[in-house]
């Protein structure tokens, strides 16, 4: 498993796509800070509930602010990261050496998780720095212990992202093709991201939407104490998503013929 991770590290460092993802996640928070400054200069006031990040302290919620963008960027990266192994035939080089398919699947998942973690750390750190530079560090309303809040919020937001990473990895292994997995990942993200808004209008389907991590990511205010109380539920749903999607992905991959 460590050998596989070493091989993945060499590939990732030399991957243009990885550097493009990192570039986007670096530029995005800086541009948003500048945009917010322009908005304020035009006489508008930033409101935390709407704008999510309004100062350096709320910068910890950059993942929430950019939830959809982060998911789409990471899903595209994962689709190529896995699909190209099938399309270039390089997956044969590993599996024909007698490497376990489970280890191969998990090494891909682990690398995708690490890339996502690194990406969201960069996004959040630069978000906090650039918003602090423009608006000062400030505070998060109704939060007394900022450090604990920051750690809990970041971990919860990352786990919500990780659950989606797990689904994208599963889709990548099921479709075995970058293009097709890209379509399915986008459809999954958009469907689970926007359908809850409709379903939440009815009492019958409201409960169902809470089994999807996007519902929390897109429709929660992570600075609101009533939503902060739901962190354990968010983590539980995310972990269940990771376990179910990974199990399904591994089972299907084990039965797959590699062309």
């Amino acid at each position: 498993m460590l050998n596989l991770l070493t091989a993945e590290r060499i590939k990732i460092i030399r991957s243009k796509k990885f550097w493009i993802v990192l570039g986007i996640l670096t530029i995005l928070p800086i541009m948003q800070a500048v945009n917010s400054q322009i908005t304020v200069n035009h006489g508008k006031e930033l409101v935390q509930v709407i704008d999510t990040v309004i100062n350096g302290a709320t910068g910890i919620l950059m993942i929430e602010k950019n939830g959809l963008t982060v998911l789409l960027i990471i899903s595209a990266f994962i689709c190529f990261f896995i699909g190209e192994e099938f399309q270039n035939g390089t997956i044969r080089n590993v599996l024909s050496l007698g490497r376990s398919r489970i280890h191969y699947y998990l090494s891909k998942f682990l690398m995708a998780a690490l890339v996502s973690l690194f990406g969201v750390i960069v996004l959040t750190a630069l978000g906090m720095i650039s918003f602090t530079v423009v608006f000062g560090f400030g505070e998060v309303a109704e939060i007394n212990h900022y450090f604990v809040f920051a750690i809990k919020s970041f971990i919860t937001l990352y786990i919500l992202i990780l659950a989606n990473v797990s689904v994208y990895v599963m889709i990548g292994f099921l479709t075995k093709n970058s293009g097709i997995s890209l379509i399915w990942c986008f459809l999954y993200t958009i469907a689970t991201g926007f359908l809850p808004d409709i379903f939440q209008q009815t009492s019958h389907f409201k409960q169902v939407t809470e089994w999807f991590t996007e519902t929390f990511l897109f429709y929660s205010d992570f600075a609101n104490p009533s939503h902060i109380a739901k962190y354990p539920e968010m983590v539980l749903v995310s972990l269940l998503t990771i376990v179910v999607s990974s199990t399904l992905g591994i089972l299907c991959f084990n039965r797959t013929d590699i062309k």
Binding site: A7, I10, R14, K16, N88, G89, R92, N93, L97
Partner: peptide
């Protein structure tokens, strides 16, 4: 076992040396 099936399975964006490094790590 060593294998090469049909088209050469290489990482197109890596050099020859880097391709070999990846395979050495895999093995």
């Amino acid at each position: 076992i060593g294998q090469s099936i049909e088209t050469p399975a290489l990482y197109p964006d890596l050099t020859a040396r880097e391709n070999l490094k990846v395979q050495a790590a895999n093995g």
